[in-house]
């Protein structure tokens, strides 16, 4: 019974509060701030710091815990998909219609295979989505100093005004890309 419930989509009112609990949890166990994008910086610092001030710091001291946390999330993704199973993702009929109109036909799985896949990389829309999209995620989060977990969840729960600006920026950018860029690209 419980196991069966676990394999279905977890509703927002279960998942959201659980995600929120990571903020006090990380604070309690080690005075850490929830935030994933910092790991991109730590990895850059570890791999290719060159003479870049932004990347010259003690990444082990500042980021070892977070890199291990990120490694854990990979493990969690594996467990979530392979042991708990992802069924059909029941997105709203409106979104299904919007995506069909956009030219996305296969709505199964976690990502659209015609775009986000190794074969998809050979198409313009796939390459832009994965390569350019990834670049902008890395550039933008470093510039803004945080991502959804760092600014939206960690920052807004701490009533940080700058996080509110950042989150408004996230949505402005996301809306622009969804409603103007995707129709041009797809």
């Amino acid at each position: 019974m419980l196991l069966e419930a676990l394999t279905h989509t977890w509703p927002w009112y279960i998942a959201g509060p659980l995600i929120g609990l990571f903020v006090p949890l990380l604070q309690l166990v080690g005075d850490k701030q929830l935030g994933i994008s910092g790991n991109l910086r730590h990895l850059c610092s570890a791999l290719l710091p060159r003479r870049i001030d932004f990347l010259r710091y003690d990444w082990r001291g500042a980021g070892a815990w977070n890199l291990i946390f990120a490694l854990g999330t990979l493990l969690g993704g594996w467990i979530g998909v392979h042991l708990l199973g992802t069924g059909e993702i029941a997105i709203s009929p409106d979104t299904q219609a919007s995506l069909h109109a956009l030219g996305v036909h296969d709505l199964s799985g976690l990502v659209p295979h015609e775009i986000i896949s190794w074969e998809g990389l050979l198409t313009v829309r796939g390459f832009v989505s994965v390569v350019a999209g990834g670049f902008l995620v890395g550039f933008g989060t470093a510039y803004a100093g945080g991502c959804t977990s760092g600014h939206a969840i960690s920052g807004l729960s701490n009533f940080q005004l700058r996080s509110l600006f950042a989150v408004l920026g996230f949505f402005a950018g996301g809306l622009l890309a969804t409603h103007l860029l995707l129709p041009l690209l797809f």
């Binding site: 350019a132 999209g133 990834g134 670049f135 902008l136 995620v137 890395g138 550039f139 933008g140 989060t141 470093a142 510039y143 803004a144 100093g145 991502c147 959804t148 600014h151 600006f165 950042a166 989150v167 408004l168 920026g169 996230f170 949505f171 402005a172 950018g173 996301g174 809306l175 622009l176 890309a177 969804t178 860029l181 995707l182």
Partner: peptide
Amino acid sequence: GGGIFGIGWA
């Protein structure tokens, strides 16, 4: 930065 990330997110 937020706007640039948002484009990448979408």
